[in-house]
Each structure stands twice: as structure tokens, then as C-alpha cells.
Simulated scan of single mutants.
Amino acid sequence: MSNTIFVLNGPNLNMLGKREPGIYGGKTLKDIEDDCVKAGKELGFTVECHQSNHEGALVDLLHEAGERTVGVVINPGAYGHTSIAMHDAIRAISVPVLEVHISNIHAREEFRHKSMIAPAAKGMICGFGPYGYIMALNALKNITA
């Protein structure tokens, strides 16, 4: 049985550390990925990290995850508020998917309050900064044990 988890990041998250540090903090995506790999190892997972600015590439990664992982942590970025395609891809796979947002989307602009991903995901973590990814990995450990 696989012990692999995908950590997927959507559009503009490759700009972490540069983009609006007052909202997203100073960590880069590489820092967050390194933290996820380390935490995953401690939890008994192999973590593979992927980032794309392209919706279809993220859909393809979700399909792949359904075939070879035990779960997914996804920060869909802005696609979380718009992507029916990603919603449908999550519903099409049988592994648990946890949605993560670095900022508290409910304390921001109104258009960010609704997630298209949340109804298809096992759960959502938002507002805890990069630590939300670690929280999601711990949650996956609990629900896949």
C-alpha cells in the first residue's frame, strides 16, 4: 500500500515570500515544501510536492493522486473560488483531499469567502499560515490510519 501524499499548490503560490508578505508571510513555497516533506517523514508519509499555475495540470495531478496516493493536501489558491473542474476531479477520486489556505479566506474580500473545493474535500484549514499544511498532514494521518 502506498504511503504517498501529494501536496498541491495552485496559481501564484510560487510567488510566496515575495507576494503580499503581510497576508502570506515570508516563507517561500520551497520552505513550505521542505517543511511538508520533513513533517510527512515524521508521520510515516512520503510527500510529493507539486505547483502549477494551470488548472488542467492540477486536475491531472488530482487524477494521478487518486491512483497512487493515500491523500492530498491542496492549496488551490484562487482556483478554490472558481474551479468546478477541480471540484469534480476531487469528487472523482477516492482518496481524502484536504483544502488549505494560508490566509483566513473568510476575513478577506467577499469573493474569497466561498470555496468551490470545500464541498468536495474532506475538510478545510485556513488562516493558520504555512502551519496549516502541517495541520493537514496530521489530519490525513488520523483519517488514513
Rank of each mutant, 00 (worst) to 15 (best):
A78E: 10
D60M: 07
D31Q: 05
N138R: 15
R19W: 05
E110C: 04
A57L: 14
N138A: 13
H87E: 08
N142M: 15
T46M: 12
A107M: 13
L98F: 11
V73W: 00
K18C: 10
I102M: 03
G80T: 09
R112M: 07
M15S: 12
V47P: 01
C36D: 02
A121P: 00
T69W: 00
G127L: 06
A78V: 07
P76E: 09
Q51P: 01
I74F: 11
G44E: 12
S103D: 11
A139Q: 14
F6P: 01
N142T: 13
A136M: 03
H87M: 11
L62A: 05
C36W: 00
H54T: 11
G77E: 02
A78Y: 08
L29S: 09
L62D: 00
G22L: 11
A139V: 11
K122Q: 13
F45E: 00
A92M: 09
I32S: 00
E99M: 06
G56C: 05
I74Y: 02
E99Q: 06
M86F: 04
Y79Q: 03
H81T: 09
C49A: 14
G123D: 03
L137E: 00
H87I: 01
Y133D: 01
E55D: 12
E55N: 10
T144N: 06
G77I: 00
L43A: 07
N142E: 15
P11D: 08
T28R: 06
G132S: 06
H50I: 15
Q51C: 06
V37K: 13
E67D: 15
P130I: 05
I117R: 01
D31I: 04
N138P: 04
T82S: 14
H113G: 03
L137G: 02
H81V: 06
S115W: 02
K38C: 12
G56K: 02
A39L: 09
G22Y: 07
K27L: 15
L16S: 04
V47G: 02
M124H: 10
A118P: 04
K41R: 14
P21Y: 07
P11W: 03
P21W: 03
T46D: 14
A107H: 14
L98G: 01
T82A: 06
H63S: 13
I74K: 00
V47A: 03
N3W: 03
P21C: 10
T28S: 13
N142H: 15
R91W: 08
N104E: 09
M124N: 12
I32F: 02
R68W: 07
E99I: 05
K27E: 15
N53I: 05
C126Q: 10
C49K: 02
A145D: 15
G123K: 00
